[in-house]
Amino acid sequence: RMRTAFTSTQLLELEREFSSNMYLSRLRRIEIATYLNLSEKQVKIWFQNRRVKHKK
């Protein structure tokens, strides 16, 4: 599987969303994925990984 290289714009938006809410509803995940031109799965995994990073 290929590793996703997020653009700086995508990362900025993902981080902004994360700062306001660490957990996404499915609807919000779809909205963000569509807006950032990513798959729902990519957004889901990014949030999972970001939560782990946040815990450390």
Rank of each mutant, 00 (worst) to 15 (best):
R1E: 15
R1G: 10
R1S: 12
M2V: 10
M2W: 10
M2P: 09
M2G: 11
M2H: 08
M2T: 13
R3Q: 12
R3Y: 14
R3C: 14
R3D: 15
R3T: 15
R3M: 14
R3L: 12
T4F: 08
T4D: 13
T4N: 14
T4K: 11
T4E: 15
T4G: 12
T4P: 12
A5F: 12
A5G: 13
A5L: 07
A5I: 10
A5N: 12
A5M: 11
A5H: 14
A5C: 10
F6G: 03
F6M: 13
F6K: 04
F6T: 06
F6I: 09
F6N: 00
T7C: 03
T7L: 02
T7R: 03
T7E: 06
T7W: 02
T7H: 04
T7D: 10
T7V: 00
T7M: 03
S8G: 09
S8R: 09
S8L: 11
S8F: 06
S8C: 11
T9Q: 13
T9D: 14
T9E: 15
T9P: 09
Q10S: 01
Q10H: 02
Q10V: 08
Q10M: 03
Q10A: 06
Q10E: 08
Q10K: 05
L11E: 15
L11Q: 11
L11D: 11
L11G: 05
L11W: 06
L11K: 07
L12T: 13
L12F: 11
L12N: 13
L12E: 15
L12Y: 12
E13W: 06
E13G: 07
E13Y: 10
E13R: 01
E13V: 07
E13H: 08
E13L: 06
L14N: 02
L14H: 03
L14I: 00
L14Q: 00
L14M: 07
E15Y: 00
E15D: 05
E15L: 04
E15T: 02
E15F: 01
E15A: 04
R16L: 06
R16Y: 06
R16F: 04
R16M: 08
R16V: 07
R16E: 12
R16Q: 11
R16C: 06
R16I: 06
E17W: 01
E17L: 04
E17N: 01
E17P: 04
F18N: 00
F18K: 01
F18I: 03
F18G: 01
S19H: 08
S19N: 13
S19D: 11
S19W: 06
S19C: 11
S19G: 10
S19V: 12
S19A: 13
S20W: 11
S20M: 09
S20N: 11
S20L: 12
S20E: 14
N21H: 02
N21R: 01
N21P: 00
N21L: 04
N21I: 04
N21A: 04
M22K: 08
M22R: 07
M22W: 06
M22S: 13
M22A: 11
M22F: 06
Y23R: 06
Y23H: 12
Y23W: 06
Y23E: 13
Y23C: 08
Y23V: 11
Y23T: 10
Y23D: 08
L24M: 05
L24Y: 03
L24V: 07
L24G: 02
S25A: 05
S25K: 04
S25E: 03
S25W: 00
S25F: 03
S25I: 00
S25G: 12
R26C: 15
R26N: 15
R26K: 08
R26M: 15
L27T: 08
L27E: 08
L27F: 15
L27R: 07
L27H: 09
L27S: 08
L27A: 08
L27C: 07
L27K: 09
L27M: 13
L27Q: 11
L27W: 08
R28C: 04
R28N: 01
R28Q: 02
R28D: 02
R28K: 06
R28A: 01
R28G: 01
R29C: 08
R29Y: 04
R29T: 08
R29G: 06
R29P: 04
I30Q: 06
I30S: 07
I30K: 04
I30E: 05
I30C: 09
I30T: 07
I30P: 05
E31V: 03
E31M: 01
E31H: 05
E31W: 05
E31T: 02
I32Y: 02
I32C: 04
I32Q: 02
I32S: 02
I32F: 00
I32D: 00
I32K: 04
A33L: 00
A33W: 03
A33F: 01
A33R: 00
A33S: 12
A33K: 04
A33I: 03
T34V: 06
T34H: 06
T34C: 09
T34I: 06
Y35N: 07
Y35A: 12
L36D: 04
L36G: 02
L36P: 01
L36N: 07
N37F: 06
N37V: 04
N37C: 09
L38V: 11
L38A: 07
L38E: 04
L38M: 10
S39R: 05
S39W: 04
S39E: 12
S39H: 07
E40H: 04
E40T: 05
E40A: 04
E40N: 00
E40K: 05
E40C: 04
E40Y: 01
E40R: 02
K41I: 14
K41V: 15
K41C: 15
K41Y: 15
K41G: 14
K41H: 15
Q42V: 10
Q42D: 14
Q42M: 11
Q42N: 07
Q42T: 11
Q42I: 09
Q42H: 07
Q42F: 00
Q42W: 01
Q42G: 05
V43Q: 00
V43G: 01
V43I: 08
V43W: 05
V43E: 01
V43K: 00
V43H: 00
V43F: 03
K44Q: 14
K44V: 15
K44I: 14
K44W: 15
K44T: 14
K44R: 10
K44E: 14
K44H: 15
K44N: 14
I45N: 13
I45V: 13
I45A: 13
I45M: 14
I45G: 12
W46G: 03
W46Q: 00
W46P: 02
W46D: 00
W46V: 01
W46T: 02
W46M: 02
W46Y: 09
W46F: 08
F47G: 03
F47P: 02
F47R: 04
F47K: 00
F47E: 00
F47A: 05
F47C: 04
F47W: 15
F47D: 01
Q48H: 09
Q48M: 07
Q48I: 10
Q48V: 08
Q48W: 10
Q48C: 06
N49D: 10
N49E: 14
N49A: 09
N49H: 08
N49Q: 13
N49I: 07
N49P: 02
N49W: 11
N49F: 10
N49Y: 07
N49M: 12
R50T: 04
R50P: 03
R50H: 03
R50N: 06
R50A: 13
R51V: 13
R51G: 11
R51C: 09
R51E: 12
R51T: 12
R51I: 14
R51P: 00
R51W: 14
V52N: 12
V52G: 14
V52D: 10
V52P: 05
V52T: 10
K53R: 11
K53I: 13
K53G: 12
K53H: 13
K53L: 11
K53M: 13
H54A: 11
H54F: 09
H54R: 05
H54G: 12
K55W: 09
K55L: 11
K55I: 09
K55T: 10
K55N: 12
K55A: 12
K55G: 11
